[in-house]
Amino acid sequence: MSLSLEKIDLLMERANVSYKEAKETLEETDGDLLEALIRLEKAEKILEPEKSASEKNRATKEAIKSKSKSFFNDLKETRFKIKNKEKDVVDVSLLTASIATLVTMPVSIFVLATPYLFGHKIVVGKEPLETKKDSETEK
């Protein structure tokens, strides 16, 4: 049986295992590289190659981008309404209401309290699908 350093290196690279595991497996298989790979695979010793730092950063950036996009889509779909008994006085997306609140911070606290003085209700939430469909067919 001839074990060459090249075979051990190749098995280490292909199976992503330690030098010791590669050498022992090749010894057990009498230097047969294919058989060694099959044994390591059956024993579930083949490790996933580690991701490089740039791949990890890219994956993290994509995850953050995806979650923030989902967050802002939810803000767009959620409605901020000020209602009185007959109709909606204000009906905007929660994103619009949030931006307006941030821009006019000192005044916005007073403005948000004012509807209650006039008997209005502030409602924040997503509309049921039936309500959206009904309002679209009325237009």
Rank of each mutant, 00 (worst) to 15 (best):
I38Q: 12
S18D: 07
E21F: 01
K126M: 07
E130A: 02
S2V: 08
E50F: 00
T60A: 08
A97I: 04
L40T: 03
T60C: 02
A59D: 07
A100N: 12
D134M: 11
L10V: 05
E44N: 05
K7I: 03
F72G: 12
D91S: 10
I38N: 09
V123R: 13
V107C: 04
K85P: 09
A100Q: 13
D32E: 12
E130Q: 03
T29A: 06
L5I: 10
T78P: 07
N16G: 02
L33Y: 12
N57F: 00
L95K: 14
L95R: 15
V124H: 07
M12N: 06
G31T: 03
E41L: 03
L5G: 13
A113F: 09
K69T: 03
L3E: 10
K45D: 01
K42R: 15
R14Q: 05
A113Q: 13
I38Y: 05
A100T: 05
K121C: 02
V92S: 09
A100R: 14
K20F: 04
K132I: 05
L117K: 12
V92H: 09
K51W: 02
Y116H: 13
L94Y: 15
R79D: 06
E77R: 15
L10I: 04
F71D: 12
D32P: 02
N73G: 12
I122Q: 05
V103L: 15
E130L: 03
Y19C: 02
D9W: 01
N16M: 06
E21W: 02
A36H: 11
I38P: 00
L112R: 15
E127P: 01
H120F: 08
V123C: 05
R58W: 01
T131R: 11
K87S: 14
D32Q: 08
V107E: 15
P128F: 06
L33P: 01
M1T: 08
K20T: 05
K139H: 00
I99H: 07
K139Q: 01
A113I: 06
L75A: 11
S18Q: 13
F71H: 15
